[in-house]
C-alpha cells in the first residue's frame, strides 16, 4: 500500500512538473513547424515568470500576472520573429541572445522594483494560481483506488495545469485540422510553394512565433505563480532547453511531444523523490547526481533518437524571395 501511495504522489508531481515543459514544448513545436527554430524558449519562459510574479505581487491578482507574463513572452517572440523573418538573421544566435539578455535583465528589474536581491516578493495564496480542489475530492478520498486516484492525481493542481489539458488538443487540432495549420506545416517544409500559392510566408511565420510566445508565456507564468510563489534568479533552470529536446524526441508532433514532456516531468519528480533516499543495493545517491538526471536523460534521448530526418525541412533557414 505504501508503494501505491508513493506512486500516486510521483504521478501527481509528474503532472505538476510537466506542465511548463508541455507548454514550452508546444510553443517550440508551433514555431519550428513554421520554420523558425526557437532556442529562446528558456529566455521567454524566464521573462514571463518574472513579469507574472512582479505583476501579481504589485496587483495581488494572478490574472494580471498571467497577462503580464504572456505579454512579456510575446514581446520577446516578436523580437525573435523580427530578427529571424525580417532580418534573416541566425535564429540560434538570436535565441541565445534573448536567453542571455533576459537572464541579466529580469534580476536587474526585480532588484530595482523590490530590493530583494533579484527576487520578487513571496506571493500570498490569493495572488497566485494555487491548488484547486475539484468537486467531491474530499468526499471521494475514502473510496479505494478510483476515489484516491481522483483526489490525489486528478484533483489538486493549479489552474494553468488544467488549462494545459485543454491547450494540448487545441494545438493538435490547430496544427492538423485547420487551414491555418495546413499552411503552417507547409511553410515549414516548403516556403516557396506557400509563397507561390499567394500566401504570405512572413505573416504566417509571425503568427506562428506569436502563438509560440503565448504558450511559452504560460509556461513561465505557471513557474512563478503556480508551482512557485515568486520569481527566483535563473528559475527556468534549463526547462526551455528540455522542452526543446522533448519536442525533437516527439518528432515535432503534439502527442509524442506531450509524452516526452511527461517522461521528463516524471524524471524530474523522481529526482526530487530520490533525494536523501536510501535505495536498496545502491545506497543513498548524492543529490548532485539526482539533479543531473533530466539533463543526462536529454543527452541519451537525443543520441538514441536522432531527429534530423523529421525536422521541418525549412526550419532555421531564412526565406528570401527571389526578385
Amino acid at each position: 500500500m505504501e508503494f501505491f501511495a508513493d506512486l500516486t504522489l510521483l504521478i501527481d508531481s509528474t503532472f505538476r512538473t510537466a506542465t511548463p515543459l508541455v507548454l514550452a514544448g508546444l510553443a517550440g513545436l508551433v514555431a519550428e513547424r513554421s520554420g523558425i527554430v526557437d532556442i529562446g524558449l528558456e529566455g521567454k519562459m524566464l521573462a514571463a515568470a518574472f513579469a507574472a510574479a512582479a505583476a501579481a505581487a504589485v496587483s495581488g491578482n494572478p490574472w494580471v500576472g498571467m497577462v503580464a507574463g504572456v505579454l512579456a513572452s510575446m514581446f520577446l517572440a516578436l523580437i525573435h520573429g523580427y530578427v529571424s523573418i525580417a532580418q534573416r538573421g541566425n535564429q540560434i544566435v538570436s535565441g541565445m541572445a534573448i536567453n542571455i539578455a533576459v537572464a541579466g535583465l529580469a534580476p536587474t528589474l526585480a532588484n530595482f522594483w523590490f530590493h530583494q536581491g533579484g527576487q520578487t516578493p513571496l506571493l500570498g495564496d490569493e495572488a497566485r494560481f494555487s491548488a484547486i480542489t475539484l468537486p467531491f475530492a474530499e468526499r471521494l478520498s475514502d473510496v479505494p483506488v478510483l476515489g484516491q486516484l481522483y483526489t490525489e492525481i486528478i484533483s489538486g493542481h493549479n489552474l494553468v495545469t488544467y488549462l494545459t489539458v485543454l491547450i494540448i488538443p487545441a494545438v493538435a487540432w490547430m496544427v492538423y485540422r485547420t487551414s491555418f495549420g495546413l499552411r503552417l506545416r507547409a511553410v515549414g517544409e516548403n516556403p516557396e510553394a506557400v509563397d507561390t500559392a499567394g500566401i504570405s510566408v512572413t505573416k504566417l511565420r509571425y503568427q506562428a512565433v506569436l502563438i509560440g510566445g503565448l504558450l511559452c508565456g504560460l509556461s513561465g507564468v505557471v513557474l512563478s505563480t503556480g508551482m512557485g510563489a515568486a520569481f527566483i534568479r535563473d528559475m527556468s533552470a534549463g526547462k526551455g532547453y528540455l522542452a526543446l529536446a522533448a519536442m525533437i524526441f516527439g518528432r515535432w508532433k503534439p502527442v509524442p511531444t506531450l509524452l516526452a514532456c511527461l517522461l521528463f516531468g516524471f524524471v524530474d519528480a523522481l529526482q526530487g523523490r530520490l533525494q536523501g533516499e536510501n535505495l536498496p543495493l545502491i545506497g543513498e545517491i548524492p543529490v548532485q547526481f539526482t539533479i543531473m538526471l533530466p539533463y543526462v536523460l536529454t543527452v541519451i534521448i537525443l543520441a538514441g533518437f536522432a531527429g534530423k530526418m523529421d525536422a521541418p525541412k525549412a526550419s532555421g533557414i531564412p526565406y528570401e524571395k527571389d526578385h
Binding site: 530578427v83 532580418q87 535564429q91 544566435v93 541572445a97 534573448i98 542571455i100 533576459v102 537572464a103 541579466g104
Partner: peptide
C-alpha cells in the same frame, strides 16, 4: 549580462 545578450543580438543575429 544583459548588455552581453544585446551585443550578441546586434552583432551576431
Amino acid at each position: 549580462v544583459m548588455i552581453q545578450g544585446l551585443v550578441i543580438l546586434f552583432a551576431g543575429a
